[in-house]
Amino acid sequence: MIRGTTILWGILVLLVSTAMFLMKMQVQTLEDTLAKVNRATRQDREAIRVLEAEWAYLNTPVRLSEQSRRLLSMEPLDADTIVALADLPMRGKTGTMVARAPQTPAPGKPRPRSASADPQAELASLEGDQ
Rank of each mutant, 00 (worst) to 15 (best):
E52I: 15
Q130D: 09
L64S: 08
V83D: 00
E54M: 12
G10S: 10
Q130K: 04
A101C: 01
T33P: 00
D118Y: 04
L8V: 14
Q130I: 08
V83L: 02
L22T: 06
A40E: 08
Q120W: 08
D78S: 15
L14K: 10
I48G: 01
K36E: 15
L15N: 10
F21W: 13
T104V: 15
T60S: 15
T104N: 08
G128W: 08
A106C: 03
G95L: 11
T104R: 04
A56C: 09
R49N: 10
T33V: 06
S116R: 00
T6W: 14
G4W: 13
G95H: 07
M25L: 14
M97N: 01
L123W: 13
P76E: 00
L72V: 00
D78W: 09
T104D: 04
L22C: 02
V13S: 07
R91L: 15
D78H: 09
N59P: 03
P61V: 05
R39F: 12
P105G: 02
I48N: 06
P102R: 06
W55C: 11
L12T: 12
A40Y: 01
R113T: 05
L8E: 14
Q43I: 14
A124H: 01
A79K: 13
P119K: 01
L15G: 12
L123D: 03
S73T: 10
L34T: 07
A53Q: 14
P76K: 05
Q26C: 08
M23W: 14
Q28C: 06
A19H: 07
S73K: 10
E46H: 11
T29L: 14
K24H: 07
R63S: 04
R100W: 06
M90T: 05
A35F: 01
L34C: 08
G95M: 09
V27C: 02
R3P: 09
R100I: 04
L88M: 09
V27E: 10
A40I: 01
S65H: 13
P110L: 07
P110F: 02
P119Q: 05
R91E: 13
S73L: 09
A84N: 02
L30F: 09
L22H: 08
R100F: 09
A35R: 06
V83P: 02
L123R: 00
A121Q: 03
R3N: 10
G10M: 11
D87C: 01
R3L: 10
T5G: 12
N38F: 07
A40H: 03
A121T: 04
Q130L: 14
M23Y: 09
E66Q: 14
A99N: 03
M23D: 07
E122L: 05
P112G: 00
V50C: 05
E31P: 00
S116G: 00
R70F: 15
R49I: 09
L72M: 13
A106N: 01
P107W: 05
L71M: 10
K24Y: 14
Q67W: 13
L123S: 04
